[in-house]
Amino acid sequence: MDNQQEHLNALQDIRQMMQRSNRFISLSGWSGISAGVCALVGAFFAYNTMHRQGYYTTHGYSGKAIRGEYSLVSLINEPLVIIAAFTFVAAFFLAFLFTYIRSKKQNIPIWGITARRLLFNVSVPMLVGGMFILRLIQYNVEGLVAPASLIFYGLALINASKYTLNEIRNLGYAQVVLGIINCYAIGYGLFFWAIGFGVLHIFYGVFMWWKYERTDAIEK
């Protein structure tokens, strides 16, 4: 019996080591929830701004009256761009914070090989998407900004799922599908954006917390 327990322990060690050595498993459900809340708050401010400035018409976001290419400098003064930047920074910071706390609990280095690999694989599609979206804005194709951000973000998650908890792949698929639908509902970008980055993140976060962290919380 003792012997059997010993062998079971050995197998468990092996499994754990295999997982720990090539996947970053400290992503916290709270990261998803907090990013989702940030996105909803950001979407709320963006909605108000659009209304105030008369961007928003009965059939959605109509685009700016001024035509022609935006310069990068003029973009920095755009209220929507500022809101987007703040939302991104806040979401990223909070998501990082909760994951950092969890990695400390699990005794997994936050800047270990798995975390670096995960970050790299998220960053590639995100940076490419970011550059693409910047050009969309500069050429006044605002209608495609929300779909493009959902699609690229979804692809980033699908790409990253090989290096972290598997469930994130489904979140990625959901974002891509939303983005594609949004391509055929131009003008409702903010609505789709709020669903994808807000609601889906919160759902995902709650699900992940329930699945992986609930038992830890109860034990304490």
């Binding site: 050995a10 080591m17 295999m18 720990r20 050595s21 090539n22 270990g112």
Partner: peptide, 27 residues
């Protein structure tokens, strides 16, 4: 040995792992 078992497990799922990362993993 648990340590040798750990080393092998980590190497089985990665193309290659450097010394410091192994040290972090196995502690």
């Amino acid at each position: 040995s648990r340590i040798r078992l750990g080393i092998m497990s980590a190497l089985m799922v990665n193309d290659e792992v450097n010394f410091n990362d192994l040290k972090e993993l196995i502690q």
